[in-house]
């Protein structure tokens, strides 16, 4: 690691904030994906299938 000089705390803080925001975004996307997949699986298990594919794309 190179020497960061007198303002090391600010540099590290900047990278930490960026990393934190990025990790939060990734976690949000992953958690959301898990939720939606579970909901879809639930619906499918209850017999509500995606036979309606054509109607769905028109409605979207």
């Amino acid at each position: 690691m190179t020497a960061l000089g007198p303002h090391a705390a600010f540099i590290v803080a900047a990278y930490a904030v960026a990393a934190l925001v990025i990790v939060a975004l990734i976690l949000w996307v992953l958690a959301d994906h898990r939720t939606q997949r579970r909901l879809l699986a639930d619906l499918e298990a209850r017999g509500i299938t995606r036979r309606s594919e054509r109607r769905r794309t028109e409605a979207a």
């Binding site: 996307v29 619906l43 409605a59 979207a60």
Partner: peptide, 23 residues
Amino acid sequence: TLHVSAMRNEIMRRRVRTLRLMQ
């Protein structure tokens, strides 16, 4: 990467919404 994954989630979310409305 994030955008494509989020779009996938959103499409799934709308599918869930439509299925629920149908139900």
